[in-house]
């Protein structure tokens, strides 16, 4: 690796001012599992690497007891989320995703914020958070701003982050009652995979436990950025969730997807998967919405 100086700020302000003072020659690093690969491959050649690992902050996801909002520090690892009983019980959609990102070793170092700012279409962490209507807090020289995660991504490897800005926190709004969520990464292996397609789905049901009052469908690798299948969501809203409506929602989502061929998979197959997996995740949501806390069983 090309030599660099590693800087260890303890506060966000310190981090930003270090970035500024080495403008053009610096990069942020958190877990490092993406950044170090880029440096090894000489795609990134910073003289200063500014660590976000040591910035003081919550070391686990927190649920605000009053607002029921979930706060996730961007600097906590996937492993922390994987092992959090709060995530397991209340946000199984997120648990489905984080427990299968990379390996235990990767999850022990890689952070959820890093997964987002990397802004790849296959980011497993992003899809369920999009379905959860999460927003992200971004801190920079101009202070803190907040943006819905769905608007965070601009293209492969591109986000709304401006130079020197840091994604600090993810905020998930309160869940409606009778909400079930699920995420599936479809890959060729059962581990160590980037998704051929990722589907994260969240359904909130009426008191009849059948009618959909709110639907969220996040798709990964279905477009240049993580996307939502808005038309499919609209279709489900107000309808009874069953084999027929889920199949139709799947087809609508498949039509919305802007899939393409890559060495990892072909477009027609990805489109097929959108249809099938939206339907399947819908059933899992239905089942989980009926359970008291949701659950974390494998999907």
């Amino acid at each position: 690796m090309k030599p660099f100086t590693y800087l260890i700020p303890k506060t966000l302000d310190e981090a930003i001012s270090l970035f500024e003072s080495h403008e053009g020659r610096s990069a942020y690093i958190a877990g490092g599992t993406d950044v170090l690969i880029k440096i090894k491959e000489r795609k990134l050649l910073p003289d200063y690497l500014i660590s976000l690992k040591h910035i003081l902050g919550p070391d686990r996801p927190l649920l605000n007891a009053d607002t029921k909002e979930l706060y996730i520090s961007a600097f906590i690892t996937h492993r922390t989320l994987e092992r959090s009983t709060l995530i397991q019980r209340t946000y199984p959609i997120l648990h489905d995703a984080v427990k299968n990102i990379g390996s235990v070793q990767i999850r022990n170092t890689a952070t959820i914020g890093g997964n987002l700012v990397n802004a790849v279409p296959s980011a497993d962490g992003a899809i369920p958070l999009i379905a959860l209507d999460a927003s992200v807090n971004i801190y920079g020289t101009k202070g803190m701003r907040s943006i819905d995660l769905i608007h965070f991504f601009l293209g492969p490897g591109q986000s709304v982050l401006e130079k020197g800005e840091i994604l600090t926190e993810i905020v998930v709004p309160p869940l409606l009652p009778r909400t079930g969520g699920a995420y599936i990464k479809f890959g060729r292996r059962k581990a160590m995979e980037l998704p051929l397609l990722g589907v994260g789905m969240l359904l909130s049901l009426d008191e009849d436990l059948a009618t959909c009052v709110k639907a969220r469908i996040g798709l990964g690798v279905a477009a240049p950025t993580p996307i939502r299948a808005f038309s499919a969501e609209r279709f489900l809203k107000g309808r009874e969730v069953n084999e027929q409506t889920l199949t139709e929602a799947g087809q609508i989502a498949a039509d919305e997807a802007r899939v393409r061929d890559s060495i990892r998979g072909v477009a027609w197959y990805r489109r097929e998967l959108v249809g099938v997996l939206v339907k399947r995740m819908g059933f899992t949501c239905l089942q989980r919405a009926g359970l008291k806390h949701g659950d974390s069983e494998d999907v």
């Binding site: 060729r188 292996r189 581990a191």
Partner: peptide, 15 residues
């Protein structure tokens, strides 16, 4: 096109 363990799919323990 896939000279790495990410895209060359050697099976893992989970498989």
């Amino acid at each position: 096109m896939n000279p790495n363990f990410r895209d060359y799919k050697v099976l893992t323990a989970k498989d």
